[in-house]
């Protein structure tokens, strides 16, 4: 077994164990209804986290995600209000914008040889600032096409709803898995995350790959923004503050090494679901307070970071032994 896979199994095991514990206490939690809601409620986060996974696998970070999602919502709301464009056309336009935005961040990171942290920090300010410039209010979206998107679902056995949004997230994860694990680009991402200097010597096109990585993250953030706009039926520039942090947490809890080079997109899905499950449990319990979510997520982060550190050590000693 590859040692590198261990965190993925740990993630899945933790999710399954947690779900079982929840089920013992609240048998209702094991229903398609709860499962459907888990997917729908966390759809935008899951989609953003797929983009973040690719970024983190390459050893980078993208702090602009939450702001880009907020910008997307505002952009969609304003365009639908002020122009006669069809939502699909607006979506296309938005995705082009956010992808270009991400690509520009990647280009700056590569061209300036500066830490991704600080470049995407500027991107975070910029995207939210532009959202503010568009509006300071929450703009409702009441396009008929939007309503049909919101209501699109497939009734699972047990009356659970598998919504379009939930499906979109699962498809994103699937797409992310293919991209990360089954394309040359994906291997290049892992290669850069494993060691940029070595990757360069092995002929990986660093500049092009870096730009594509952040462009992909921008695209996924845009898609997450669309999903969030459909989910809330509004565009609000103050929305989704700190979502980048949740996405990073989901990626790490999903077993991806925060310093890059090791991890899976599937794990991120379980990271997102675990975080969602904690919230669901707190709702079911009714007496527990919401802040336990943050504390438990913090503990899980610590656990996984230490686990990864331990694996690194074991891996090294095993090799030299």
């Amino acid at each position: 077994m590859n040692l590198r896979r261990l965190p993925l199994y740990a993630t899945i095991a933790i999710f399954v164990a947690a779900y079982l514990l929840c089920w013992l206490q609240f048998p209702n939690i094991l229903s398609t209804r709860v499962a459907g809601n888990l997917l729908t409620d966390n759809a935008y986060l899951g989609i953003a986290a797929v983009g973040m996974t690719i970024v983190i696998l390459s050893g980078g970070i993208d702090l602009s995600v939450g702001s880009v999602i907020a910008f997307a919502g505002v952009f969609i709301a304003v365009m639908l209000r002020d122009t006669g464009l069809h939502p699909l056309a607006v979506f296309a336009l938005l995705l082009i914008l956010t992808t270009a935005f991400g690509a520009a961040q990647g280009a700056l990171i590569h061209a300036l040889a500066m830490p991704a942290f600080i470049v995407t920090l500027a991107g975070m300010f910029l995207a939210r600032g532009i959202a503010y410039l568009l509006t300071l209010d929450s703009i409702p979206i009441d396009h008929p096409f939007f309503e049909s998107l919101q209501k699109a679902y497939w009734l699972m056995p047990g009356k659970g709803r598998l919504t379009l949004l939930g499906v979109l997230m699962l498809l994103s994860v699937l797409g992310g898995m293919l991209l990360a694990h089954r394309t040359r680009f994906g291997t290049n991402v892992f290669a850069i995350g494993g060691g940029e200097g070595t990757a360069r010597m092995m002929g990986v096109p660093i500049g092009r790959t870096t730009i594509l990585i952040y462009a992909f993250s921008g695209f996924m953030a845009g898609l997450a923004g669309i999903v969030f706009a459909i989910y809330t039926a509004a565009g609000y520039p103050l929305a989704t503050v700190g979502v980048e942090l949740n996405a990073i947490a989901a990626v790490v809890i999903g077993g991806t090494l925060l310093s890059g080079g090791s991890g899976t997109v599937l794990g991120t899905l379980f990271g997102v679901l675990t975080m969602g499950l904690i919230q669901t449990y707190i709702v079911f319990d009714g007496t527990l307070s919401s802040w336990w979510t943050k504390i438990v997520i913090g503990l899980l982060l610590f656990l996984f970071i230490v686990l990864q550190k331990g694996l690194l050590k074991v891996g090294l000693s095993r090799r030299t032994a």
Binding site: L245, W291, K294
Partner: peptide
Amino acid sequence: IQPIVATLILMVAGRGIAQL
């Protein structure tokens, strides 16, 4: 642990602790 990773833990959990 890398500083950015190490301090992320408290960044996430800290507000929960404060709310507690």
